[in-house]
Amino acid sequence: MSHPVRDVPITGAPIRLGQFLKLAGLAEDGAHAKDLIEAEEVTVNGETETRRGRQLTEGDVVAVGGEQGRVTTG
């Protein structure tokens, strides 16, 4: 059973996936974010994402394991 989606407010969209993982607390730091992405453990809107520089916009849902965060602005 997955956890509920948590809204993560950002200032100014878009935001890169690696940055969002850190901001949302899904990764400890940039190196951890890179490792998670390279291990194909990160999904964006239900699809595996392997690009750390993937641009996220409002409403995108990022998941690592059972943890999920939704990009929100404002």
Rank of each mutant, 00 (worst) to 15 (best):
G53I: 10
T57V: 09
E47W: 02
E28N: 09
I10Q: 07
I15Q: 08
N45M: 03
E38R: 15
Q68K: 05
V71A: 02
I15T: 07
D7Y: 08
G66T: 15
T72C: 10
G59W: 03
L36I: 09
I10P: 01
E47I: 08
A31Y: 11
G46E: 09
T48H: 08
I10V: 15
L17E: 00
E40P: 02
R51Q: 14
Q55V: 10
E38N: 13
L36M: 07
A63Q: 08
V62T: 03
V62Q: 01
V44H: 04
N45Q: 03
G65W: 09
M1F: 06
R16A: 10
R52K: 10
T48G: 05
A24F: 01
V61P: 02
G46Y: 08
T11R: 15
L26Y: 00
D60P: 02
I37Q: 04
A27N: 00
E38Q: 15
G25T: 04
A31H: 14
T50Y: 12
E38T: 14
T73Y: 15
V62P: 00
A31W: 11
G59E: 10
E47H: 07
L23P: 03
E49K: 01
G65M: 08
I37M: 03
V42L: 06
Q68D: 09
D35V: 12
E38W: 11
Q19C: 15
V64P: 02
F20G: 07
Q55F: 13
A63C: 05
D60K: 07
L36N: 05
G18M: 09
P4F: 06
K34N: 11
G46D: 10
E58I: 12
R51C: 08
V5T: 14
L36P: 01
H3Y: 09
E58R: 12
T57H: 10
A31R: 14
G74R: 15
N45P: 01
P9I: 09
E40H: 14
P14Q: 00
R6P: 08
G12N: 15
G30A: 13
E49F: 07
P4L: 05
Q68I: 13
H3N: 13
K22R: 14
E67Y: 11
L26E: 01
E47R: 13
R16K: 15
T48Y: 03
N45L: 11
L21N: 02
L21T: 00
G59R: 05
E47F: 02
A31E: 13
M1G: 12
V42N: 03
G69L: 00
D35H: 14
V8R: 11
A39F: 01
L21P: 02
T43D: 06
R51H: 12
A13S: 12
G65F: 02
G65I: 01
V71R: 01
D60R: 02
P9A: 11
V44N: 03
E67N: 07
I37N: 06
V8T: 04
R70I: 05
R16Q: 11
Q55C: 04
R16M: 12
G25Y: 01
V62H: 00
I37S: 03
E40A: 15
R51M: 09
G30S: 09
T57C: 10
L36A: 04
N45V: 13
G53Y: 14
A13F: 13
E67I: 06
R6W: 07
E41W: 12
V42A: 04
P9H: 08
L17H: 04
G53K: 13
